[in-house]
Design a protein around this nucleic acid. Structure first.
Lengths: 130, 130
DNA sequence: TCCTTTCATGCGGTAATTTGCATATATGAG
DNA sequence: CTCATATATGCAAATTACCGCATGAAAGGA
């Protein structure tokens, strides 16, 4: 009764569809930033150096696929990685999360964005503390 | 000297380009088959149920990218997964390799192809042994 | 209310992928 | 050499993805 051959029939179409989310330079960079912590759109805009509608479009693709979720906070919208499977994939593709020193500042790689509201002192947190 | 911020500057373009190889249903299925063992084109053709030129084209994409290598054996050409990084990705995306019972037959999931040359008894090996 | 800021959406053109099909190449048998 | 089989390649049509841009919607301050 050892039915070796009837294995779980992976859904290659579904899997490749999810892989396609990451198979894009800017979306991959966004996901890399988000796996450290949630970020608002203006930060991601500064990180990518692309126009805001462009960033929002990539975010929409990720959101519609269930990879990320938005949390509105007044005028700003923060996005967070919520898909465990994709988080696991990122761990292998990009390596372990950088800058996750316990208790250390967020925004390790994220460049300071122009908006004064996102953070009081966007990136200097590390150095100012000295 | 703790330079937290200057991390290894991942090449998102290169990584997404390699992810794109797997972000395709048939290529993903091919890779899943190949990570068990090398397979010849006719087997893969039977597995996918697609015309031979179609299969050869996907194989070419994977070969040009360095994911797989061909080993000619007479009239047949066997393909083998050779990229360690991609093999590691597949492990996470598809789960551990199925049907890798030690010392057990190859061709677990691969359907028997029509060609009589690939294998004397393509798929029956398991049962014939009884 | 009006204005500013932050973000989202819709649309169109362009570029890249996908895929079917005709054909080319290579190997071995006879 | 000729033929059959296994595989590769080239090309074009169809589809899809990508990206810039104009505009829309929501929130908060004055």
């Amino acid at each position: 009764m050892a039915e070796y051959r009837a294995d779980q029939e992976l859904d290659y179409t579904a899997l490749s569809g999810r892989l396609k989310l990451l198979a894009h330079p800017e979306r991959l960079r966004i996901c890399d930033a988000l796996r450290r912590d949630a970020e608002c759109v203006c930060h991601l805009e500064a990180l990518l150096g692309k126009p805001q509608p462009y960033v929002s479009q990539q975010l929409r693709i990720l959101r519609d696929a269930g990879a990320i979720q938005d949390e509105k906070d007044g005028v700003n919208v923060f996005y967070r990685l919520v898909d465990a499977e994709i988080i696991a994939w990122l761990e292998v593709v990009l390596g372990p999360v950088q800058g996750e020193h316990p208790g250390m500042a967020r925004h390790k790689q994220v460049i300071a964005c122009a908006c004064p509201k996102c953070e009081p002192t966007p990136i200097m947190l590390l150095d100012e503390a000295a």
